[in-house]
Write a protein that binds this DNA or RNA. Structure first.
Lengths: 157, 157
DNA sequence: CAAAACTACGTAGTTGGCTACATATATCCA
DNA sequence: TGGATATATGTAGCCAACTACGTAGTTTTG
């Protein structure tokens, strides 16, 4: 039993990160094993474009919950892989509109069964007595109502 | 409502990381607000040393669940801050034994009330219908029994 | 309708974790 | 007991997120 497990709550940020990293790495392995040239971090962008078809850079960033510079670097990778393409918005010349290429759309089709298996496996792992996904959602909701910092302020009085 | 929230499980790694980052940042703000020169990432090391008094580098790494190089870089920072000090183990010259300095011990005392408030606030946030900390523990346990990759293999058949 | 404010995108540089590799010491076993 | 193996530490460099800042185009407003 290590200490971090004992003190729990104060190191929760550390533990969230550790778990995230573990799942990410295994996810990468699963794609590799299935001969799919795909990285877990691309999933949010690809899936978003699969559903919404065409979006600007900042719109994607908002959808996936990343900063826009992070999103730009993801998009660069995906463009290099020819999974997405982009063009300037004629109505608003500041915007760059992103869509999946034919290759990108094929990739989505190819990945569907893998995603299904991954979903099942992840559910096995996370759908326990305390459902991890729901716990995350509930925590996020609480944070939206009032942030960690604000709560600490009030508790201190 | 953004897409990542809808697809949930497949982006769980992303969401864990996002939540972790959010809590870490607010944590830093709380220390700053209380005029304590301390970073959230130092917590696991400091707390470990507070409890165990004297440990080697690798022992600390194991306790906090980090790789030893990451631990070394944390220790370097803490040594620079004069929060910890270290000496060679006379019985095993490979080892470097780490302890809290007087300043480090004072810091722990000073931080106790802040930690208490933080614990309470974190409990408000995470102790919902599905307790986040317990959900993490349960997921980690499941992963120990069988990894994500192995599960996906078996489900695929 | 021009100046101010705002929005979209991009680049540069930081951060906090990691793996891979190198070296020194300790332990084990033929 | 000395050569192979294992362990402890350290360095270098990678990676994927971030913030801060700059530029260009759009919208608002006095």
């Amino acid at each position: 039993m290590n200490i971090i497990d004992e003190i729990g709550i104060l190191a929760i940020s550390t533990r969230l990160q550790r778990l995230s990293e573990q799942l990410r790495k295994d996810g990468a392995q699963i794609y590799a094993y299935n001969n799919i040239d795909f990285e877990p971090k691309w999933f949010p962008v690809i899936y978003t474009l699969h559903v919404k078809e065409m979006l600007s850079v900042v719109e994607i960033a908002n959808e996936i919950g990343y900063s826009h510079p992070s999103t730009i670097s993801l998009l660069k990778e995906l463009e290099k892989q020819k999974i997405i393409s982009s063009k300037k918005d004629k109505l608003d010349e500041r915007k760059r509109l992103i869509i999946l290429t034919a290759k990108g759309k094929e990739l989505v089709v190819k990945m569907q069964p893998v995603w299904e298996v991954m979903s099942k496996a992840l559910n096995e792992i996370t759908n326990t007595q305390n459902n991890l996904l729901k716990a995350i959602e509930e925590a996020e909701e609480n944070l939206t109502r009032q942030g960690f910092f604000q709560r600490a302020l009030e508790l201190k009085g």
